[in-house]
Design a protein around this nucleic acid. Structure first.
Lengths: 349, 349
DNA sequence: TTGAAAGCGGTACCAG
DNA sequence: CTGGTACCGCTTTCAA
């Protein structure tokens, strides 16, 4: 634990009996061909012996690039998040870049602080996978200092899922995913259908709500029933609360099928059902969203919609890399398909 | 998206009509008292107007500290990991430091690369929450360049959970947690008991195996039955495979209770039970480890052992901060209690 | 209270 | 192919 000081280029230059500039070249992947084979070998040897590691702080200062990409997520504990991060890291591993992750817990102020912090740290780009709909203006501003790409959640007009934000975006198709869920209910003969909405400031939930509603309304004699409350958090407790309200409806209006915008909310719906003495799927069918781990083990195994998390990560990272290379990502928005996972929580009516 | 160049100290010095050194002082939390109130105000104003953000790369190079702590985890998708990270970030938020996370997937080579990478990036310390038992020597070496603290998993002698590694450690008490699980089985009248072991290179599993075994053996007429296979991964498939072997035992030797070193393995055990036409807990009782999300929703709700993940994170971070401040953490090892979570997967025999 | 200047550890341009 | 040197942006010591 002695001297914590590590060897510098100067040290190995001295050791190898040459100039630092030459040492730098010898060690550089891109310029090592400029140096004589024999000197190169001597430098490598000195470096090895002295345990030399580049100081990437110094390198970053000089080169103006840190080789680092900031990633802002809303919930690290969400397994979906981990998958997105892996997608990102897969492409960053190829380019030799490194990701730095920060978490917002869906707090707007925390998002701003994270952007600020990453900007100070001079990350080469930021992937925001935690945007709220009304963050657009701020993010556009921040993007003047550090290139930003949006992932998972768009930002901007709540009413228009197709509106471009001005920032490159890698998203899942929430409108279509939810529409498929709606169609699945319709195909099973359900006509009184309800939603348990997630947070209304977040595009994922707004778009799911919109896609679901449109699909139901497109069907002549099906009706969307119930309140327009929104969950404050994607938790079991919130799902239970909102579902209980739905089940308190007069019995002829009561939904026979409920679409929850998230698996945890769906579990809360199952709880509310049990409390009301109702069975799933015999009395009420349920569909969730996300395909969380172990969600196939609840009772009944939950039908849900699975997001292309890994691919979102890959695309977002590629967009970030493009931006860093000075290329405008083309297309500016990619929307990846979600996929229904059919299990046992939906019954024929 | 125009000029991506951000204002530097020089810019704001020019703007405020003073020297960069003065600007630096005015902006510094610790030296701003050295500058005249009026000049300070002028500097702050210029900084605000030009949108100045310190360049922490330059600051780091000059100060020799990056204000950054590396964290190496084995599995980002494990919710337990997220909780540890939050514990870490809670203390780092206070000190104004930032964590940089890397993932190993339990591959020794990846661990080494991560340490190397973080060292090059000049993180002020590294928290390794992904160590294998045989990483000790390497980590000790690496700690010469960057202070390292161990979390979650110790490294060193497999046979001696109390052996100090020479690195500060924040751990959970796996020996005792497993012993409590054993005692729980014994108290419920079980006498033929088996384990489904996790990876034998990882202290968590070795120590659980040891703690469980000791507790069973301390009881006069209980016996540990079955093989000594180990799971290669903590997956449902591996749990199922190992449990199936156990259930293939002649019926008088067959265990009536199985302790799985991890919840996913335990779910695999439940699968194997179902396949063998056995019920849980009526025929065979099961205990898992980790208290994973939704594990209370499987059938039957799983009795398990919960780790003090957040506290581990806090302690590890504090140790890292101490090391950075040149203080040797005292004590050099903290071992935090695990806690049984009793649900419905254990029956009286 | 402010200015001047050195320097952290590399990289890259220019000479030779 | 190698050496010399300026400089990235900030902090800090020394002088004024």
């Amino acid at each position: 634990m002695s001297s914590r000081r590590t060897a510098t280029l100067k040290d190995i230059a001295a050791d190898a009996g040459i100039h630092v500039a030459t040492a730098s070249r010898a060690l550089s992947r891109t310029h090592s061909h400029l140096v004589q084979e024999e000197t190169r070998k001597r430098v490598l040897e000195s470096a090895e012996r002295l345990g030399y590691r580049v100081n990437s702080v110094a390198r970053s200062l000089r080169s103006g690039k840190t080789g680092t990409i900031g990633v802002i997520v809303f919930d690290l504990a969400n397994p979906f998040t981990a998958t997105v991060l892996r997608g990102i890291d897969e492409v960053l591993d190829e380019t030799g870049q490194l990701s730095v992750v920060m978490e917002t817990h869906n707090e707007p102020e925390t998002l701003r602080r994270a952007v600020e912090r990453l900007t100070e740290n001079r990350v080469d780009a930021i992937i925001v996978a935690a945007a709220h709909l009304d963050d657009r203006e701020y993010l556009l501003e921040a993007a003047a200092a550090t290139p930003i790409v949006l992932a998972v959640r768009r930002s901007g007009d709540p009413a228009d899922p197709a509106a471009l934000s001005g920032l490159p975006e890698a998203l899942q198709d929430d409108v279509k995913g939810a529409a498929e869920a709606a169609q699945f209910f319709l195909d099973h003969g359900h006509r009184h259908i309800a939603q348990v909405h997630g947070d209304s400031r977040i595009s994922s939930f707004v778009d799911r709500g919109f896609g679901f509603q449109s699909a139901i309304e497109a069907h002549g004699d099906a009706a969307l029933v119930g309140h327009d409350g929104h969950a404050h958090d994607s938790t079991v407790a919130e799902g239970r609360r909102l579902a209980a309200e739905l089940l308190a409806l007069p019995s002829q209006e009561r939904p026979t099928a409920i679409f929850a915008h998230n698996d945890m909310l769906a579990v809360g719906v199952l709880d509310a059902l049990a409390e009301a003495g109702l069975r799933c799927p015999e009395d009420v069918s349920v569909i969730g969203y996300n395909d969380a781990p172990l969600i196939d083990r609840v009772t009944p195994p939950l039908t849900t919609v699975k997001l292309p998390a890994f691919e979102i990560g890959r695309h977002a990272a590629q967009m970030a890399v493009d931006l860093i290379d000075g290329k405008e990502p083309d297309p500016a928005r990619v929307v990846l398909p979600a996929e229904m996972v059919i299990r046992d929580s939906v019954a024929q009516r």
